[in-house]
Amino acid sequence: MALNTPQITPTKKITVRAIGEELPRGDYQRCPQCDMLFSLPEINSHQSAYCPRCQAKIRDGRDWSLTRLAAMAFTMLLLMPFAWGEPLLHIWLLGIRIDANVMQGIWQMTKQGDAITGSMVFFCVIGAPLILVTSIAYLWFGNRLGMNLRPVLLMLERLKEWVMLDIYLVGIGVASIKVQDYAHIQAGVGLFSFVALVILTTVTLSHLNVEELWERFYPQRPATRRDEKLRVCLGCHFTGYPDQRGRCPRCHIPLRLRRRHSLQKCWAALLASIVLLLPANLLPISIIYLNGGRQEDTILSGIMSLASSNIAVAGIVFIASILVPFTKVIVMFTLLLSIHFKCQQGLRTRILLLRMVTWIGRWSMLDLFVISLTMSLINRDQILAFTMGPAAFYFGAAVILTILAVEWLDSRLLWDAHESGNARFDD
């Protein structure tokens, strides 16, 4: 018995066209964080690309023209004298008006014999932002004059995390709450300039795509075929072959399989920071003279006294001054041990922890910024005066060393310790 099946006739004509040209192939790229070699397709503007294995951002879609970056830099340069030299806060102490600005706080630190601690604050609040705007201006002028731009481009990517104007702005709020127990506070004209400078700096850093600047100024022929001998440069993120001198053909720094002496430098910085954190938390970090009496505060006791007036601000200072430094030390110690013992479990967790400490590390400088600003506000000789204690130097040095330890660690070593050939990683 035959089955009668109805015929289905399409209502619209289906047209099949042959592909007349070869589909576009992607360029081969190595991930600078996990060293995976993959094919990167062509990316349009405002599109980002991520590593298929570790999800690290390979290409950032946010990109401004150099002219727009230069305009932002010149605007920031105009704001800087007002943000640093004009009063941020006014207080009335014992019937006398006192003005506080950024430069005055750094000068008070240096004047009291601790120039190293003052230079830490100076670099993060004044030096690094000033280098940022002058570097962008150098790129703008240098591109037109045919100057060598490689050193500036190499420095810009590392400079971003040292620009800490946003953290200093939080420190202004913390210092205001600490001082309000002794005097009446009012915002100064410099505060508005400083807030504007923070906003412009944040926007500029978020749109400063150094890798795209490398592509514009020093374009290189990408690798179009897969080759395990391809290496990625950690300076400019170019994937290719080393030249005859073993250097990256684009930025001219040595092109090595792994960062040289990464573990040794990381261990040295980490152990030194552990040693410095002990006096930083045991010795007094601030000293207040009130009517001839002397009151010393460690980091913890200062947080407890701050909690009596504002528990939320005390929580912020606790996280930045105690929780973050010790968390960074514990995480980095764990990561280094996992590399030495070739741990194969929990790779995803370790990668996330490394990215976390990379982002939060700079916030530990908050305590030094609060001390710097408070020193310029309260300084009335023996009637009422505020000065920093010996722990300030140890704390600042420990924070900087932990930042350097994270920067010096080559994250690809975590993958080397893991089993080879993993296309995915999980716990």
Rank of each mutant, 00 (worst) to 15 (best):
407 E>I: 11
412 R>K: 09
292 G>H: 11
265 K>Y: 03
66 L>M: 14
188 G>A: 09
136 I>L: 11
47 Q>A: 06
57 K>D: 04
98 I>Q: 02
233 C>D: 03
244 Q>T: 14
337 L>V: 11
295 Q>H: 15
312 A>I: 14
143 N>L: 15
138 Y>D: 01
344 Q>A: 12
108 Q>Y: 12
412 R>P: 01
141 F>N: 01
324 V>I: 10
107 W>Q: 15
274 I>Q: 14
228 E>R: 14
404 L>V: 12
145 L>Y: 09
354 L>R: 09
73 A>W: 13
346 G>F: 15
102 V>P: 03
78 L>I: 02
152 V>D: 02
206 S>M: 15
192 F>Q: 06
356 M>Y: 09
403 I>Q: 02
44 N>L: 06
339 I>Y: 13
181 D>I: 01
208 L>D: 08
84 W>A: 07
91 I>N: 11
267 W>A: 15
82 F>A: 04
20 G>Y: 05
183 A>H: 08
100 A>G: 03
419 E>G: 09
412 R>T: 01
143 N>G: 15
206 S>K: 15
122 F>P: 00
422 N>P: 14
286 S>D: 00
224 T>R: 13
178 K>R: 01
75 T>H: 08
351 I>A: 13
298 T>G: 06
1 M>G: 00
295 Q>D: 03
124 C>V: 07
64 W>K: 03
63 D>H: 14
26 G>R: 08
317 V>P: 00
252 H>C: 06
234 L>D: 14
237 H>A: 11
260 R>E: 09
331 V>W: 10
107 W>G: 14
395 F>G: 06
386 F>D: 00
256 R>I: 11
196 A>F: 14
81 P>I: 04
105 G>L: 01
137 A>E: 06
15 T>C: 08
93 L>M: 04
411 S>V: 08
55 Q>H: 07
115 A>Y: 05
135 S>N: 06
185 I>G: 02
268 A>H: 03
242 P>T: 09
294 R>I: 05
257 L>A: 13
370 V>C: 05
17 R>P: 07
382 Q>E: 03
336 L>R: 01
343 C>G: 12
386 F>V: 01
8 I>K: 10
174 V>T: 09
116 I>K: 14
259 R>A: 13
163 V>F: 07
235 G>V: 03
357 V>G: 03
280 A>D: 02
269 A>V: 08
9 T>R: 09
297 D>P: 08
114 D>C: 01
335 L>N: 05
55 Q>G: 10
404 L>S: 10
178 K>H: 07
373 L>H: 03
44 N>M: 05
32 P>H: 07
381 D>N: 09
125 V>T: 07
280 A>G: 09
92 W>H: 02
41 P>N: 05
170 V>P: 10
195 V>C: 12
24 P>R: 06
292 G>T: 10
290 L>M: 09
217 F>K: 15
334 T>A: 10
75 T>S: 13
333 F>R: 00
346 G>S: 11
60 D>A: 04
62 R>F: 06
424 R>F: 13
268 A>W: 02
381 D>P: 08
280 A>H: 02
389 G>W: 00
141 F>H: 01
72 M>W: 02
184 H>A: 07
245 R>G: 13
144 R>M: 14
306 L>P: 00
231 R>M: 08
304 M>N: 14
96 I>H: 09
342 K>L: 12
311 I>C: 14
279 P>S: 15
83 A>N: 03
228 E>Q: 12
162 W>C: 03
54 C>V: 00
288 I>K: 00
307 A>S: 13
423 A>G: 14
30 R>I: 08
148 N>M: 03
80 M>L: 04
130 L>R: 01
124 C>Y: 02
48 S>V: 11
137 A>R: 00
367 D>V: 00
199 I>L: 12
266 C>S: 13
392 A>M: 03
351 I>P: 10
373 L>M: 08
303 I>T: 14
248 C>S: 00
161 E>D: 13
174 V>M: 14
402 T>C: 04
281 N>C: 10
150 R>T: 06
23 L>E: 08
332 M>L: 11
363 W>M: 02
209 N>F: 11
107 W>M: 13
11 T>H: 10
225 R>P: 14
302 G>C: 02
252 H>K: 10
81 P>S: 05
268 A>I: 04
399 V>Q: 04
350 R>L: 09
15 T>S: 07
78 L>F: 03
264 Q>D: 05
229 K>M: 12
96 I>K: 03
42 E>K: 07
72 M>H: 02
333 F>Q: 12
261 H>E: 06
295 Q>T: 12
409 L>T: 07
106 I>N: 03
281 N>H: 04
362 R>S: 04
307 A>C: 15
70 A>F: 12
33 Q>P: 06
9 T>F: 06
132 L>N: 06
61 G>T: 10
316 I>N: 05
424 R>S: 12
353 L>C: 14
195 V>N: 11
71 A>W: 10
293 G>M: 12
275 V>P: 02
279 P>V: 15
162 W>T: 02
119 S>F: 05
376 S>E: 14
9 T>L: 06
242 P>C: 14
257 L>Q: 07
83 A>H: 02
152 V>I: 06
198 V>T: 15
42 E>R: 06
12 K>Q: 05
359 W>F: 09
176 S>T: 10
